[in-house]
């Protein structure tokens, strides 16, 4: 397994390089530039071509694209992502890290929630397969899956942030001006702010998890060893939890690998709706603002997470079912 793992890791480097190259090319091919804002037709005197060229010279944006890419690569290997081209001109690493901390916490809470709800629901559906309640649950989950996140979030806001049931905050991750006396108070405040966005994120994916868990457990329930265990008089609950779930959880576990990039990348819709300064929002802002260094850093982050996700999927696959043979 070690050799296999090393081989997989070695393959990651050229893949990541390819990702950065494609991102670099695509971001530069997009029309407009980081300073096109200074050509704003709605704001009077626009920059002349000469002035624009002077700015680009200062920032090295006038060099050839291969040269710019190599310079970026040179800094990247030293883990230096440069400074943002946005108005704040802050180091990209600090900006990305700041947003990453926000996103990862929120997305992790969502993942816990989606697995916490999805897996038991899936097991329940498998155990009651074909029943009216199971069909009803399946239909409900399908409906939930079909609802766009933005609409789901708006519904949650309408339910829990306004009107009679208004009990949860609407914006941000902390109460402005609140000086928590201790860590517990701070946690409660954070949890109150995070519960709706995390629920919104989780609900959008809970149907998928449930279906995977249901299919896996249902398949396991039809295996001969389950029939044998049942014949030995093993209680149904134990049969489900110990044997069927353990064997049927594999597809659900491997699904985690594909969730990882999403986990790292943040969610534009939810972050926008709930006013959360995470990676999703940073991504869209930096793409629209042609903030090339930030776009590149984010592509490295998400690219790494995607590869790590695939790797993790394979590793988990092996760990959960050791009988799978390595190539």
């Amino acid at each position: 397994m070690r050799v296999w793992l090393l081989r997989r890791l070695a393959l990651c480097a050229p893949t990541l390089l390819g990702v950065t190259l494609v991102t670099f090319a695509l971001s530069r091919m997009a029309p407009g530039g980081p300073f096109s804002g200074l050509l704003d037709p709605s704001e009077g005197k626009p920059l002349t071509r000469e002035q624009l060229a002077s700015i680009e010279r200062t920032l090295g944006l006038d060099r050839s694209l291969p040269e710019q890419y190599l310079r970026w690569l040179d800094r990247f290997v030293r883990f230096d992502f440069g400074d943002s081209l946005a108005a704040d001109r802050r180091p990209v690493r600090a900006k990305v890290l700041e947003a990453f901390q926000v996103s990862i916490g929120l997305q992790a809470a969502a993942v816990v929630l989606m697995y916490g709800v999805g897996v038991p629901l899936g097991v329940y559906c498998a155990a009651r397969a074909g029943s009216r309640l199971e069909r009803l649950l399946g239909g409900g989950l399908f409906l939930l899956h079909s609802v766009p996140v933005l609409l789901l979030g708006t519904l949650l806001i309408a339910l829990f942030c306004t009107g009679r049931l208004a009990s949860l905050p609407l914006l941000g991750l902390s109460t402005p001006g609140l000086r928590p006396a201790n860590a517990w108070e701070a946690f409660v405040d954070l949890a109150r702010h995070a519960v709706l966005p995390a629920t919104c994120l989780a609900l959008a994916h809970v149907a998928g998890i449930t279906r995977y868990a249901r299919a896996g457990v249902l398949e396991a329930l039809h295996q001969p060893f389950i029939h044998a265990a049942r014949a030995r008089g093993l209680p149904e609950r134990r049969l489900l939890a110990r044997h069927a779930l353990r064997n049927g959880i594999l597809p659900t576990v491997t699904l985690f690998g594909s969730i990882l990039p999403w986990l790292v990348g943040g969610s534009v819709a939810v972050e926008t709706l709930f006013g959360i300064p995470g990676l999703g929002r940073l991504s869209i802002d930096s793409i629209l603002g042609r903030d090339y260094p930030t776009v590149m850093a984010l592509s490295v982050l998400v690219g790494t997470a995607t590869m790590a996700g695939f790797l993790l999927t394979d590793v988990l696959y092996v760990l959960v079912r050791r009988r799978i043979e390595l190539p």
């Binding site: 708006t154 806001i157 309408a158 942030c161 306004t162 208004a166 609407l170 914006l171 941000g172 402005p176 001006g177 926008t272 709706l273 006013g275 300064p277 929002r281």
Partner: peptide, 17 residues
């Protein structure tokens, strides 16, 4: 206090709260 990055659709809700 100035909240940033608010969705314009949220103004009535925020105002009501």
């Amino acid at each position: 206090r100035i909240h940033v990055k608010c969705e314009i659709d949220q103004v009535p809700a925020l105002f009501e709260r």
